[in-house]
Nucleic acid binder design. Structure first.
Length: 267
DNA sequence: AGCTCACCCTGGACGC
DNA sequence: TGCGTCCAGGGTGAGC
């Protein structure tokens, strides 16, 4: 389940291929391309200038205002691989680069997608601030959450509130903040919001340091597993003891998503 | 406007 | 062994 730390890790692991020229593009499954301002073949001859991230989106910038935006949904991978390596089932889109290497978009569940656009910012107009910027602060959350009755967990998952948080890190962030996931967002005090902002950066930062969380599908840009799954405090730990107080971790459904929390540490 | 929920999709786990 | 059913969830959109 690629969230901000996973996409950031992929971004960093793709930096070595910046500067390489595209020699061929193969649309194995054109259905995954959600929008095309230009044909895939017009990428041929372009140089990959840089790789960026916005929320959970990976943004590949080629020259001549050609951008390839990738979202990995919940089961997607985007990685570099030698062209000689066998192509796995569910490989939907391939960008072949000079020197025998290629970028492969693989996604068995196809919840993700690819956008070939000239102005990527148009895709991101509804996205909230990045959690590592000054815009993401206690005052901002106070304004956004004022009067809101929805569960804080649901709003942390809302990409228009803050970009990049998914189900795993939302649970981990709320545990670190000592806040119960079902609390109405509008009921959080200024102190709690301050703490929420602080631990959001810390938890996501640790996720990046561990190169992401791999349960099943996630791999980085080198097709390697992450390490944060070994440090999870609540997610996927239903019935196991809390790492702080020893109480059993509980699981409830909020907004259709599993939410894990410690009934003793989170109020 | 805010909130909840169904839907898309596939592979894996589980029960019979 | 094999079949059927359920579950995971990011984003979107329908409906209340």
């Amino acid at each position: 389940m690629p969230e901000l730390p996973e996409v950031e890790t992929i971004k960093r692991s793709l930096e070595p291929v910046c500067g390489r020229r595209v020699v061929e593009v193969i649309e194995v499954n054109p259905v995954v391309v959600k929008r095309r301002d230009f044909s895939a073949s017009s990428l041929v001859g372009c140089v990959l200038k840089q790789v960026a991230r916005r929320g959970k989106y990976l943004v590949l910038e080629f020259d001549e205002d050609h951008f390839m935006v990738v979202h990995l949904g919940m089961s997607g991978r985007f990685y570099r691989m030698a062209s000689s390596e066998e192509r796995a089932k569910h490989t939907h889109f391939i960008v072949k680069l000079k020197a025998g290497e290629e970028l492969r978009y693989w996604d068995p569940r196809r919840f993700g997608g690819v956008w070939l656009v000239s102005k990527p910012a148009e895709l991101f107009t509804a996205l909230g601030p990045e959690p590592f910027t000054d815009d993401f602060c206690q005052e901002y959350l106070q304004e956004r959450f004022h009067g809101r009755k929805a569960a804080i967990k649901s709003l942390l998952l809302d990409q228009s509130v803050v970009a990049g948080i998914g189900n795993i890190y939302a649970d981990e962030i709320l545990f670190a903040a000592g806040i119960h996931p079902a609390r109405p967002a509008g009921s959080l005090s200024a102190e709690e919001l301050e703490r929420l902002c602080k631990v959001t950066g810390e938890v996501l930062g640790r996720g990046i340091d561990c190169r992401g969380t791999t349960f099943r599908d996630y791999r980085d840009g080198n097709n390697e597993r992450g390490g944060f799954q070994d440090f999870l405090t609540v997610y996927s730990r239903e019935g196991e003891p809390c790492t702080v107080c020893g109480q059993q971790i509980c699981r409830i459904k909020l907004g259709g998503r599993s939410s894990h929390y410690c009934p003793c540490c989170q109020k």
